[in-house]
Simulated scan of single mutants.
Amino acid sequence: MRLFIRVISAISQGLGVLAAALLFSAVLSVSHMVFVRYALGWSTVWQTEYTAYAIVAATFLGAPWVLIVKGHVNVDIVQMAAAPPLRLAMQILAALFSLLFVALLAYAGWVHFEEAWSNGWTSETVWAVPLWMPLLPMPVGTVMLALQYVAEILRLFLDGADPVEPQPVLFSETTEEVRP
């Protein structure tokens, strides 16, 4: 089980690096587009479409890594107040519901990808990208996110509940007088 957790986590971290590279390439693409349009006065063909596809791909492919670092939106005020056994049960239950949602999303993503592949769909732009390419990150990312949820559930069973980390203090106890 620990091997499964390590392998899935390593793949998720690799996808996180790939997502970062995709975001960086999107920044370069936008920079290129601005230079070509405004400095050279030329029209652009592929930059806007590539940037949109790269950002969406980064979102799906980076999601498993975000789960590892606990970066997904999580309302944990009740978990923070709960005793460790109840916190563990709540974390497992939340992960199971999330796994169900992600599995359904992965299935829908696969169906959409397969339809684009089988029918030879292309984008309706001058670039005419085969749409299976920008659709592929959705099933890949969601399947990996589902596997990362399985790894997280196994880790919860093996190691217990995640510790409750105190949140940073937003306001101090003392206030200072503000002078104009």
Rank of each mutant, 00 (worst) to 15 (best):
M1D: 06
I5G: 08
R6W: 06
V7A: 12
I8D: 06
I8Q: 06
I8C: 06
S9N: 11
S9K: 09
A10T: 08
A10E: 09
A19M: 01
L22G: 08
S25E: 00
S25L: 04
V30I: 14
V30P: 00
M33R: 13
M33Q: 12
V36P: 05
R37V: 05
Y38P: 02
G41Q: 02
W46L: 01
T48K: 02
T48S: 07
A54K: 00
T59F: 12
F60L: 10
L61M: 06
G62P: 10
P64S: 11
L67E: 09
K70H: 05
H72I: 04
D76Y: 01
Q79A: 10
M80P: 00
A81H: 08
A82H: 08
A82N: 07
P84M: 06
L88K: 15
L93Q: 11
F97N: 14
V102M: 05
Y107D: 07
A108F: 11
G109E: 11
W110Y: 12
W110C: 07
V111K: 12
A116Q: 08
W117R: 13
W117S: 08
W117M: 08
N119P: 00
E124L: 11
V126P: 00
A128N: 06
A128W: 02
V129E: 00
L131H: 05
W132H: 05
M133S: 01
P134K: 01
L135A: 12
P137V: 01
M138T: 08
P139G: 01
P139N: 00
T142M: 07
M144I: 07
L147C: 10
L147M: 07
L147G: 02
L147K: 01
V150N: 03
L158D: 10
G160P: 00
A161K: 04
D162F: 11
D162V: 15
V164W: 05
E165H: 14
Q167V: 15
V169L: 15
V169A: 15
L170V: 14
L170F: 15
L170K: 14
F171L: 13
T175M: 13
E176R: 11
R179N: 03
R179I: 03
